[in-house]
Design a protein around this nucleic acid. Structure first.
Lengths: 392, 392
DNA sequence: TCCATTAAACTCGTTCTACGAGCATAAGGT
DNA sequence: ACCTTATGCTCGTAGAACGAGTTTAATGGA
């Protein structure tokens, strides 16, 4: 009992306040030291102490802040040039993107590449090279890898990835041999996290994020944390039975909302066969000016608006953010969308319906969400303790 | 948008560990001191210290625990006979119930009374008498009042309460003059909290709780915390458009799930007029043995099962718990319910569908949830500090 | 019966975060 | 120049949690 295996945590919460400061730095880049002290309710002496410790550890640096009115000027907290980094990767259907991220969430060394082959082994090898290259470049400064994938992730295994056409893929080879922790998550979930942390839903207690690509994905985010569910499959709003029960969904259920809001729905309305690439198909339909196309778009936009209303009734979010095709879809048929949204709301919500905003990060969302996942990992109490004393 | 200035300050306060211990006492009544130390990862010296402090403050007492095998026996932690108490109240349509709750969540002094008049002023006066009587009985030991109401609550104001027929009622008169904090919440939400803490969903990371009474209410609970939404209206699953869009719901929207799963739906299926009391009507239909009734029950049970499947697809809960009429409804038409549930699930979930369990607390759920709300309030760092030094 | 074994509680000295009080500092305003 | 204001710094203290070592109260075998 005396020799407890708690070698990791010398003392509980020892670096907790330091972790909070670094977390704030990621959520509000460029925040001043005085603002940090105010937000975390620290006394000025504590702020002095914690920043001094973080400076000593090469976790952050300070630069003079532009002064506002009287009083001694404060400093802006910035990530240290030798500070820890995270590699963020967004694995998409046709390509991947990566970036190296510092504690303030800023992206450097952006890279991207189309898949030569879409087979898991090939893609993972390609990504592993990125990881190793980054590792060679930054050495011990690189502390974690955050990964966004278009699929359901649980314990670093893909359990479901219909868009990629993968199944049961172990993602851990990505970091095998590097001793780097891999933090993987669903792309829609992570883009929602990015919106809630630093995007259009920043500051919202409850935020709902929805992305239309092929079908619809999304996530409910409460206080910055996504409701990931038991197996990481939380946020599959596309498979709520909002639609026509006569329609069979590839998922096995019937009447899925998925089938009403994407390129497949547009094709059905236009009497055309199901497109191979529903995303590209939807983009072409959205560019057409004819009456038929705009009618189909209006119908689909209405299905989107009415479903969102149902989710707003259920979750009562502060704000809803949209990504992917949902943005041009709404823009192309604002009237139909708004009407369906309002009519689907309970009277209770109609006086002040939650605003529906276009996502601020757009295509960067998933990458920034992956970055946030990685940063969360390296700004924990335990991770800072390890950084402070690697031999502990 | 709500600003979350307090969400950030997760700093460990002076009494934080003591608060954690008391919180554990409420979740696992009868827990031993050794188990607490193990769960909170405290060293034995810390456990000694924290229990000693809590004993000195008359927050808990210790009793010898039955020994299991060798070794020095540990003690069971029990609420102190002079320790703090919470008054829990469940305000229902026709009556109210109350109980005095100690730190282990046990209910004493149970009371209940039918409303003489259903008008807000009359009911609130009646409840105020309960509060004052309890206050007189227990003095300073009474620290908070937890209240469950069948309506939407925000900042201790009822903003919506169709079953009670109330609107915009300020609940604070209940505690006016007593300086007691009032913690009010929705009854469905709170019964879900009770299930997640100490009931059928205990230990679940993500739990979905659904209650059918008149319409359907519920809540999504992540790590013991309900997703209350922006204005406290989270969990209104009854107003998702799972149903027939031709049907108008009193809420203003169309096709609400609400209309498919309660007494009103049964009446519609049976070709009868809408009942005045859909709950009682449903109970009589459930007792009928004829073919027509069982057909209607099967249809309604299927609507319930299929909607739950949609919510499971969306939230991926570890477990679903049922309350109210949902329990006899499922029992009466298990086949229809199960079939609709399975068919509505995505293939992904079919291998291992989340279990759907009857609630453990049944009619006590809301009361126990109100108790949990109150206990949460008095087991915070700040509340313990005030208890320790009332003059601070 | 006695004693080794075991798990847990207790004691003591140490570490270290956060704080309060008081002082110093760097701006803007008058 | 001098006051005002907001902020940062220094120093001493409080007190929670810890590690190491010791004690205690049970079981179970010799």
């Amino acid at each position: 009992m005396t020799t407890r295996d708690s070698a990791i945590s010398s003392r509980r919460g020892r670096w907790q306040t330091a972790a909070d400061v670094l977390g704030l730095l990621g959520r509000q880049p460029g925040i001043t030291r005085a603002a940090v002290a105010h937000e975390l309710r620290l006394s000025s002496s504590s702020a002095t102490e914690v920043t001094a410790r973080l400076r000593d550890l090469q976790l952050l640096t300070e630069a003079p802040a532009p002064s506002h009115g009287r009083g001694r000027p404060t400093t802006v907290l910035l990530p240290h040039p030798n500070g820890p980094l995270v590699l963020a990767i967004d694995l998409r259907q046709g390509n991947w993107r990566s970036a190296v991220v510092s504690l303030d969430g800023s992206l450097q060394d952006n890279a991207s590449k189309r898949h030569r082959s879409r087979r898991p082994a090939s893609v993972l090898t390609s990504l592993r090279e990125v990881v190793e290259h980054t590792r060679d470049l930054y050495g011990d400064r690189l502390r974690a890898v955050g990964l966004a994938v278009a699929g359901t992730v649980r314990d670093n295994h893909l359990t479901q990835a219909t868009t990629l056409g993968w199944a049961q893929v172990d993602l851990s080879p990505l970091v095998a041999g590097t001793a780097l922790p891999l933090l993987a998550g669903n792309d829609a979930t992570l883009s929602g996290v990015a919106e809630a942390r630093t995007g259009a839903a920043a500051g919202a207690g409850t935020a709902l994020h929805l992305i239309v690509e092929v079908g619809i994905g999304g996530t409910l985010i409460v206080d910055g944390i996504p409701a990931a569910g038991s197996t990481g499959a939380g946020g599959e709003y596309g498979h709520m039975p909002f639609g026509d029960r006569a329609l069979h969904c590839p998922c096995g259920a019937r009447g899925c909302w998925d089938l009403e809001v994407d390129g497949r729905a547009l094709a059905r309305r236009l009497g055309e066969p199901e497109p191979d690439d529903p995303y590209a198909y939807a983009e072409t339909v959205l560019q057409r000016q004819d009456k038929e196309a705009s009618g189909a778009v209006a119908t689909v936009a209405a299905a989107l608006g009415s479903g969102i209303a149902g989710l707003v009734n259920a979750h009562d979010p502060d704000v809803v953010t949209l990504g992917g095709l949902a943005i041009p879809l709404r823009a192309a048929a604002h009237m139909s969308f708004d009407e369906a949204y309002r009519e689907g709301l309970m009277a209770f919500h109609r006086a002040e319906p939650p605003p529906i905003l276009d996502s601020a990060h757009q295509k960067d969302g998933a990458l920034r969400g992956a970055a946030a996942l990685g940063l969360d990992h390296i700004t924990t109490d335990a991770a800072i303790a390890t950084w402070a004393d690697p031999h502990s």
